[in-house]
């Protein structure tokens, strides 16, 4: 049967193209990683130093302490984790209601989704003014609330898709067995949705962790997050390459690890559940 099927070889062109694309993906990452451990004297060398003879950690020290990277890191951790917990818990409840009771028909779910596509600039101007009025400007609470709302479409729609593919009959069995609606949600639906909740949490966290625009406008000296620290390196043409790279590594390593871990939920995460992964 199989004998007449020609064995497929991977054509050489295909390998070359894939290799080139991988190089394109990896080049910036490699350069950032190498720059972060390169002594400052190597910056200007011609030809460029592809790998430093004497790797150094001084840039990490400077980035974290001299440029308040550590403070940004801590703020980012506090704000991202808090916003993730809030967004996913509030979003999961809403998603459950939308998926099981079709609450508000299509209008409500579409309204939530549309939040995802509003241009941030339109929200941020009045939000900035209001935050100043009520004293939330440059506070952790202000950032947490803002990030919670800005990630709600992601958590709601990811969980919405997850609940919809879960059979209803399990919760119905729980209702007949003697649970209240809350009981069925808490002791049956939630444990079963746990993998989806974890995936939604990771995507929400990454969204908060990598966000720049809101943080740029809503924070200054107190609640600034890691990405906004990069502003500090703009004015010094080149002198802080090592520090910028070190900070980049500190920021991107955790989110890449998390992202690759929940890779199989990636399609659902990127399309807000419109496509099953």
């Amino acid at each position: 049967m199989a004998s007449w099927v020609r064995p497929r070889r991977i054509p050489i062109v295909r390998i070359v193209v894939i290799a080139l694309f991988l190089a394109f993906v990896l080049a910036p990452l490699y350069w950032v990683a190498i720059t972060s451990i390169k002594p400052s004297d190597d910056y200007l060398a011609v030809p460029p130093v592809w790998f430093p003879d004497a790797p150094t950690m001084v840039h990490y020290e400077a980035a974290l302490f001299a440029y308040r990277g550590l403070q940004g890191l801590i703020n980012s951790i506090i704000i991202s984790i808090s916003a993730t917990i809030l967004s996913v818990s509030v979003g999961t409840l809403m998603a459950y209601s939308l998926a099981r009771f079709n609450t508000g028909g299509q209008h409500l779910s579409f309204w939530v989704l549309s939040q995802r596509f509003l241009p941030p600039i339109a929200i941020i101007l009045p939000l900035f003014l209001n935050y100043r009025l009520v004293g939330l400007q440059d506070t952790h609470v202000g950032m947490i609330v803002a990030y919670t709302v800005f990630t709600l479409p992601v958590s709601v729609w990811m969980m919405f898709a997850y609940f919809r593919q879960m059979p209803r009959s399990l919760e119905e069995a729980a209702l007949v067995d003697g649970c209240t609606r809350w009981g069925a949600l808490w002791s049956v639906a939630m444990p079963l949705a746990a993998p989806g909740i974890v995936a939604a949490a990771v995507f929400t966290f990454i969204a908060c962790w990598t966000e720049f625009f809101f943080a740029l406008v809503l924070t200054s000296r107190n609640a600034f997050t890691l990405p906004t620290v990069f502003r500090a390196f703009l004015s010094f043409q080149g002198a802080q390459y090592g520090e910028a790279s070190a900070l980049a590594i500190v920021s991107l390593v955790p989110s890449i690890i998390l992202g690759v871990l929940v890779q199989k939920h990636l399609v659902r995460g990127l399309t807000l559940g419109a496509v099953r992964g």
Binding site: V25, L29, V32, I206, W209, T210, E211, F212, L226, P227, F230, A248, S251, L252, S255, I256, L258, G259, V260, L266, L270
Partner: peptide
């Protein structure tokens, strides 16, 4: 991998 990195970076 690039999907998980801040655009700033």
């Amino acid at each position: 991998v690039p999907l998980f990195i801040s655009p700033v970076i």
